[in-house]
Design a protein around this nucleic acid. Structure first.
Length: 571
RNA sequence: CGGGGCGUGGCGCAGCCUGGUAGCGCACUUGCAUGGGGUGCAAGGGGUCGCUGGUUCGAGUCCAGUCGCCCCGACCA
């Protein structure tokens, strides 16, 4: 394809609002342009990358038994009312009314639409399982869109939904999809890690996120250095080492009150009483559907609400408001402690290893020191905190290391969360009515492209992995006529005949401009054709990634490209 | 939703404090030179200064409102 015919508006400077590399490079290299906050146009190069990713996704999905369909983008409110999400989804759901004042929304995801379709069409166990996917533009009215395609409001997503007759089969489908995802991201040339993710309030469900490792990632994950276990920090289980448990419950009444006027946080209190954060506890009061409850963690740890919900078995929880705390505990926020309170106290495992620690005195400007576990009632010790580097892995006892990741895909075992309320039932062999067991599986297509750039770039521009590069090779003739251009055109035609995708820079610009643009747009191989080389019968062959250049005989170039093709596992 | 910042030619910015002919770099057009890493010289074109209202003889500049965009935060005591 001719460079001159394509729309590739490269920029010397990146627009000031681009924060992360992938966003800057996509703008500079002429891949995307912003139309509104979080809404982007995909220019030709970008679309080619997206199509490549989609192709890989399609191939792997189809070969795993999932088949493509296309659901509407616009859905009536009734469907969402039925699932209960019209009210629960919040302002991220873009809603509007048609001319008859009927309410609609633009799909941020399609559980409702697919469940509606399937419940009408599938009646018998004989018709199961079914696994459908689509690749479609979604809209989520994000509070704060940022980082270009990484967190846009409008975005392209592959979303798949599976329907099985029972949990056993649904979990098999889950495994199939999990394996397909591994192949997809491997084929895209990405360094990624599947990690266990939060499952929310649905019991017995499973979820994995596929995280592309990158420092600019928005998600924090921990990975074990000994085994395969990896998880989102919010989800990661932490092994409470029994060696650390001190039998301090025997010690009682040793504590004493110390004045800490105006000092509320551990950072403030610590220096006053000369204690490290590891010797201080935080007592957090939560409002829940079962009334007020306390969660206690060490001051340098962070409580995870999801873990708290699981430990306590409550449906919902959020930190209690200051007034509520003052009213129930009798002390202002910052001075709350577990001693003498009447509401349930859930404590993190880490407290088992603490002795002579500090808590709030339930009295303004006062804390208690030399407190031990025997001094107050704990309803239950649980894993309540966010994992950090150095924590122990529950599977093998190895140590966690912490990483940043970009979530490019997610697989989720849904169970009957949608089939039950929406009446997606089938009749089994015994003639009994059963809810279908579902799973859902998403991949952010645009985000995958962005993640690939985060992982593959240098200070000159993008370096695409071969399987998702917009073109395989860029031919750069240093003249627009004569032998140089003739050779270039001929070589391009030969490559294209061998299914190698070629971008030929036929523009009337200086060599330097072509070189710089070539580095920027990141096509993995470059072939530079100039007069000097041709006189020796050679052209220059450059690997964008390594920057290595070598002179190759003109007649050997095609063979060379084909060799690389095979090495890269392309056909 | 709270806090902060920014809206001046396609992009990046200066000018605003202290009101008085709207500027710079890149990009664009034309000509000449150049032709292997964003080349040089010369001549050009292009801006209701986000919008509305106010103060003033006079507003890009001061004031109020409004819209848009960006950043940080959203209660872990």
């Amino acid at each position: 394809m001719k460079y001159s015919e394509l729309l590739i508006p490269t920029l010397r400077e990146a627009p000031a609002d681009a924060e992360v590399v992938s966003h800057q490079l996509m703008l500079r290299a002429g891949y995307i342009r912003k139309l509104a906050s979080g809404v982007y146009s995909y220019l030709p190069l970008c679309l080619r990358v997206i199509r490549k990713i989609e192709k890989i996704v399609r191939e792997e999905m189809e070969s795993s038994g999932a088949h493509e369909l296309l659901l509407p983008i616009v859905m009536p409110a009734e469907l969402w009312t039925e699932s209960g999400r019209w009210d629960r989804y919040g302002p991220e759901l873009l809603r509007f009314k048609d001319r008859h004042e009927r309410e609609f929304c633009i799909g941020p995801t399609h559980e409702e639409a697919i469940t509606d379709l399937i419940r009408h069409e599938i009646k018998s166990y004989r018709d199961l399982p079914k696994n459908c996917f689509q690749i479609q533009t979604k809209f989520r009215d994000e509070v704060r869109p940022r980082f270009g395609l990484m967190r846009g409001r409008e975005f392209i997503m592959k979303d798949g939904y599976s329907f099985d007759r029972d949990e056993e089969n649904a979990l098999k489908t889950y495994e199939l999809m999990y394996d397909a995802y591994k192949r997809i991201f491997t084929r895209c040339g990405l360094a990624f890690r599947p990690v266990e993710a939060m499952t929310g309030a649905i019991g017995g469900s499973r979820s994995h996120e596929f995280q592309v490792l990158a420092d600019s990632g928005e998600d924090a994950i921990v990975a074990c250095d000994q085994c395969e276990y990896a998880a989102n920090v919010e989800k990661a289980e932490i092994q409470s080492s029994s060696d650390d448990v001190h039998q301090t419950s025997a010690i009682k009444g040793k504590f004493r009150k110390v004045p800490t006027p105006g000092k509320k946080t551990a950072d403030e209190v610590g220096p006053v009483v000369r204690l490290l954060p590891q010797q201080i506890t935080k007592t957090l009061v939560f409002e829940t559907d079962k009334g007020l409850m306390i969660g206690m963690v060490r001051a340098d740890h962070q409580l995870v609400e999801e873990k708290f919900k699981q430990a306590t078995g409550v449906e919902w929880c959020h930190l209690a408001h200051e007034d509520a705390v003052l009213k129930t505990i009798g002390a202002p926020v910052g001075y709350v402690g577990p001693i003498g309170v009447t509401i349930p106290v859930y404590a993190d495992h880490a407290l088992l290893a603490m002795e002579n620690f500090l808590v709030g005195a339930n009295e303004k400007d006062m804390h208690l020191v030399d407190v031990n576990l025997g001094d107050f009632n704990v309803t239950q010790f649980s894993d309540l905190r966010r994992a950090v580097a150095g924590d122990a892995c529950p599977r093998c006892g190895g140590k966690y290391s912490e990483h940043r990741g970009i979530e490019v895909g997610q697989v989720f075992y849904l169970g009957t969360k949608y089939s039950e309320p929406m009446g997606a039932h089938f009749t089994d062999e015994a003639g009994k009515d059963q809810p279908m067991v579902m799973g859902c599986y998403g991949i952010g297509i645009g985000r995958t492209a962005a993640a690939a750039i985060e992982q593959n770039h240098d200070d000159r521009g993008i370096i695409w992995p071969m399987p998702i590069a917009p073109f395989h090779v860029e031919i750069i003739p240093l003249a627009r006529d004569g032998e140089v251009f003739e050779v270039a055109t001929k070589l391009a035609a030969e490559c294209e005949d061998s299914n190698i995708e070629v971008l030929i820079d036929d523009r009337d610009v200086r060599a330097g401009v072509k070189f710089n643009d070539a580095e920027l747009i990141g096509i993995p191989y470059q072939i530079v054709i100039g007069m000097k080389g041709l006189q020796e019968g050679v052209v220059e062959f450059k690997d964008r990634r390594t920057g290595m250049t070598e002179k190759i005989k003109r007649d050997d170039v095609l063979a060379r490209m084909l060799t690389i093709f095979h090495q890269e596992g392309m056909s």
